[in-house]
Design a protein around this nucleic acid. Sequence first.
DNA 1: CCTTGACCTTCCACCTGCTGGAAGCATTAC
DNA 2: GTAATGCTTCCAGCAGGTGGAAGGTCAAGG
Lengths: 130, 130
Amino acid sequence: MNIGDITQRTGIPARTLRYYEDIGLVAPARAENGYRDYSAADLDRLMLIAQARHMGFSLDECRRLAALNADPGRASREVRALAQKNLAAVQDRIARLRALEAQLRALIAQCHGDDQPDCAILEELSGKRP
Amino acid sequence: MNIGDITQRTGIPARTLRYYEDIGLVAPARAENGYRDYSAADLDRLMLIAQARHMGFSLDECRRLAALNADPGRASREVRALAQKNLAAVQDRIARLRALEAQLRALIAQCHGDDQPDCAILEELSGKRP
DNA sequence: CCTTGACCTTCCACCTGCTGGAAGCATTAC
DNA sequence: GTAATGCTTCCAGCAGGTGGAAGGTCAAGG
């Protein structure tokens, strides 16, 4: 299959597929004419990668997931550990963002938001308030 | 003040302060010896920027916040609008991450996580399940 | 007075995960 | 035959920094 077919089936832009080859995430064969010639296995691998990306896995984690997927002797423990690491990272980010949200809300609530220059947000940010 | 003093007072690494100068976010004077010579106003500006970065504002938003802070004729409406745009972005990211979290939890719950190779996570990700 | 160590300077490259454009072949459609 | 896609490569950039090398400066101690 040509790169365009893979794009259609995985939703990954051609550009990104070339990038994935650059970083060694996938290694399609080449046809006589120099075009990338993706095998069914390449497609499978890229499908997995596309899904994993949607689930927030980093490219490096995708690489490991693809390796595990291709390894018949794998232990599902390893896969689960990767997923749990990812979950923890996601939860951490959520926690941080929620704290941020609360702070922003508080800031916004204090600002009049009118034509006048006095602004509680700027006061807070520039540390002019204790 | 030297760059090290600013680092101590703002918590922004010297490296990053130089970067901020490169992108025109701050423009300290230079001493005879070529060292950056930050004024009190520069420090104030960087304090604001450091706080705004903590609140998730982009560098471009920081630039605008700093400009508003320095403008006595500003309308607090503008500051508030910036903050609200940021809040909306944060909320959007939280929503996405929460959806992700739920998906990851579901995946993890289905995987045995033992020595065996069969793994619900890989099955889901590689689309071997409907 | 000299040396040591901390601090400062510049430059250039690298990180993640792409994305954009230009220039140039190959293939396909009409 | 030619025009529109589709493919190739390379180079360059986005955010927001971080890392290292090579070198100038300054303050303190012996």
